[in-house]
Amino acid sequence: MAEAPLWSVLVLPAVLAVVTAGASAFDAVLEARAAGAAGSRARAVAWPLREAARLLVGQRRVTTAADGLLWRVGVLTVPLAALLAALVLPLGGVAVADPGVGVVWFNAMEILSWAAVWLAGWGPNSALSLVGGYRFVAQGLAYELPHMFALITAATAAGTLRVGGIVEAQSHLWFAAWMPVAFLVYLLSAVAMAFRRPFDAPLGRDLAGGAAGELSGVDRLVLLGGRWLLLVVAVAMSVPLFLGGGQGPLLPSWLWTLVKTAVVLAAVVWLSRRFPTVRMERFAEFAWVVLLPLTVLQALVVSVVVLAW
């Protein structure tokens, strides 16, 4: 896989923005359908745009004795982490960067969201926001280890941490086919990392918005938009890691990448509406007692297969 020329740095955000807008529009249509909104299912496509406009013209707020610097840093870090993680995301055969430690880079960048949500919750000097921050740290403790094992499993099978190498290793068989547990756990943890529903407890309605509860205007747009971006990037990464990247017949590989990403993303968005908000006091046990051993076992099986062949 080739590292791309400089123009790809400009293309990447544009492509991500389009995919993110599409995903949130799809979610809006599902929402309109669930609400039975009269005649507005088609109009729901414009909801994310209206939302963005609403937040752009909205007033920003300041709370008493807020830690303004850390607060804004936290908010800004969410989209920034997503963008940085996306640097190693291949679109077809082209990625902005394809370093030898691509998987590690990706993981390191997405983990920035831990700091981001915690700071966003800490910043406004508000009890409920702070609790939202706590919740995300607890969430991280639950999903991160299974997530890392899922990443490692794909890297082990390919024998490289380079994302391009992982794609090449799937020329015969997609990793999703022979390591389904790692694939599913990866998707689950991608949603948890993006603190999207059903893992949206850090921003929960029961906390009056939690870590985002004091945000308005453009700050809110940055955090919530960044959250969508994080989901899109994390889910899109499952395509090179488990679904053979741009490989496929007839179509050009960049189109295959987009098609696969769209399908997985749609499935994730649709599925995520089928569950109530998952509280970590209950999920952490499941993550550590069920998911973690499963992913370890999966990694073991894959390692044995790699050694034997």
Binding site: R60, R61, V62, T63, T64, A66, P124, S126, A208, G213
Partner: peptide
């Protein structure tokens, strides 16, 4: 424009 509403609510 940011403003301080002087009421640090929620805390």
């Amino acid at each position: 424009s940011g403003r301080d509403d002087g009421s640090g609510h929620g805390d």
